[in-house]
């Protein structure tokens, strides 16, 4: 185990923190919107999935970087 592997592991962990916070806040906001206005359920769900995919995309970028740290050392 070298420092690169340690960095990759830490990086993946911190990424998960950020992505989890982001998607959690997103889901909370969507749920509030749904509770207030149940008739927009379809629209809210689609928008939520798109936003979640964008957040996830950023998180996956950093996961790929972590993977490269391990694979290409």
């Amino acid at each position: 185990m070298d420092l690169g592997t340690l960095g990759a592991g830490l990086g993946a962990g911190i990424t998960v923190l950020g992505a989890g916070l982001g998607i959690g806040r997103l889901a909370a906001a969507a749920l509030e919107a749904l509770a207030r206005q149940p008739e927009i359920a379809g629209d809210a769900r689609t928008t939520m999935i798109i936003a979640a995919a964008l957040i996830e995309g950023v998180a996956l970028f950093s996961c790929v970087i972590c993977m490269l740290l391990v694979v290409m050392k």
């Binding site: 995919a53 964008l54 996830e56 995309g57 996956l60 970028f61 996961c63 790929v64």
Partner: peptide
Amino acid sequence: FALTIRLFANMTA
């Protein structure tokens, strides 16, 4: 690029 990484990483992970 984001589309590429998203699909690839999701399926691989």
